[in-house]
Amino acid sequence: MTVVQNSERVLEPLWRIRLKLFARGFKKNWALFAESPIGLIGLGVIVFFGLIALAQPILVNTVWEPKVYDPINGFDIEIPYHPSPPSARHLLGTDVLGRDVLSQLMYSSRFEFALGLISAIVTVLIATTIGAVSAYFGGLVDTILMRLVDLVIMVPFLAVLIVMSALMGVGMIELALVIGILSGFGGTAIVIKSQALSVKVKPFVDVARVAGGGHAHIIFTHLVPNLMPISLLYMMFVVTGAIFSEAVLSFFGLTEIQMSWGLMINTTQVFGYLMRFDTWWLLFPASLSITFLCAAFYMVGRALDEVVNPRLRER
């Protein structure tokens, strides 16, 4: 048997080791992610929209005069007719109400991010909890939670939103919560539960029980960490869904949101410019942005899928 020599052992503080481990894990996963061109393109698009979202408030306070360039209340009195085509003053032209389209587009993207991420986090938190708890306990708990999931899947969330918008105003936060709770978590919870079921039967869960670990210990140290990758993956898909849903709702004027890509199209439609290709700058910037950002999150999700599921990876 080896004689233990304590003096030889120089141990770093735990938090520093954990930080290093995290960094190493991140590097490894990044290397895998970076192998997928789809993921990199998606990430590039997301970063691009992120940058323009950050740039807008800076521009408004420096180069752009707020009176003219404010995305909601701005108006350019120096141009006689609105909507005006792209010019040096307005790179993407102005809309029907005389507001700068580029500024609107940039302002909205900040909002789209917030909406997408809030609803995704809500969905994933609920879905992971329900999935893990229902898989771990099984029996009655499982039955009740799964019926709840069925209910949520069956609720027509568009109809709920229409009713909600009639009864009360649906702002950004409300919309994010409703999308988070109603649209996504049902299906996600079922997927996460099936993953949790396969983790639950692993011997390391039995080991933890034999060591005296309680329910909370097992759920939070063994189940949830092993569900995180798949949760993260579904988060990406929920973001896509949320942005898309918002666009649809705003297009029909069902929200009280002051500015968004969907609303930009809505404004265009209300004033009858929707099907006119001579005023393309009213339609295409917003609709292409929706398409690209949705696609970008989806692409990142697909690339993450390959990181998460080693089976999809080529040797």
Binding site: F204, V207, V210, A211, G212, P225, N226
Partner: peptide
């Protein structure tokens, strides 16, 4: 639980892959 412990067959499955 402190007095009785168990060792499992499969060394690949009996450890949480996300724990050091």
């Amino acid at each position: 639980r402190r007095r009785v412990q168990m060792i499992f067959q499969d060394p690949y499955e009996s450890m949480n892959p996300r724990m050091t």
